[in-house]
Deep mutational scan, measured.
Amino acid sequence: SMGQARALMGLSAQLDEELDFREGDVITIIGVPEPGWFEGELEGRRGIFPEGFVELLGPLR
């Protein structure tokens, strides 16, 4: 894990590789696949999402 982030708003996945989450969910960050995107894990599910949907809870490791 690289850190954690809290969802500022919900994301309804449009693509298979995207992660669904609700506002307030705390997501474990597991990677940065490309600039502007995070890869995360939530409730046993993994996927990517735009960084603008979340606030980091501390610096990434």
Rank of each mutant, 00 (worst) to 15 (best):
G3P: 06
E39K: 10
R46E: 05
V54E: 02
E51S: 14
D20W: 06
M9C: 14
E23A: 14
L11S: 15
I30L: 13
L42F: 12
A13H: 10
F21S: 05
V26D: 12
I29H: 03
G31T: 03
A5G: 11
A7P: 12
A13L: 00
I29M: 01
F49R: 06
G44E: 01
L56F: 10
E34K: 14
L11E: 03
W37D: 02
L56Q: 03
I48F: 12
E23V: 14
G44M: 08
M9D: 02
F21W: 04
G10S: 13
T28D: 14
A7I: 06
F21H: 05
R61N: 13
M2Q: 03
G31L: 00
R45G: 00
L42T: 04
Q4T: 14
Q14M: 08
E43N: 14
E17F: 10
L56W: 01
S1W: 11
E17N: 14
D20M: 06
S12G: 07
L56T: 10
L57S: 13
E43P: 02
L8P: 15
I29G: 00
R61S: 13
E55Q: 09
S12E: 07
S1I: 15
E34D: 06
G3E: 00
E43T: 01
R45T: 03
R22T: 12
R45C: 00
M2T: 08
M9K: 15
D25I: 02
F53D: 02
Q14K: 12
E34I: 13
R46M: 05
G58T: 12
F21D: 00
A5E: 00
G44N: 02
D16Q: 01
E18N: 10
A5K: 03
A7G: 01
S12D: 14
R6F: 00
L19N: 02
F53H: 15
E23I: 10
R46D: 03
D16Y: 04
D16A: 08
I30K: 12
E55Y: 14
F53P: 07
E34F: 11
E41V: 08
V32L: 08
I29P: 05
G58F: 10
A13C: 06
G31P: 12
V32F: 07
L19H: 00
G10C: 12
D25P: 00
A7T: 09
E39M: 05
L42W: 04
I48G: 01
E39C: 12
L15F: 14
R6P: 07
M9S: 09
L11T: 12
I27V: 05
A13F: 10
I29N: 07
E41G: 07
F53I: 12
E55D: 09
G58P: 13
G52S: 08
D16P: 14
R45P: 03
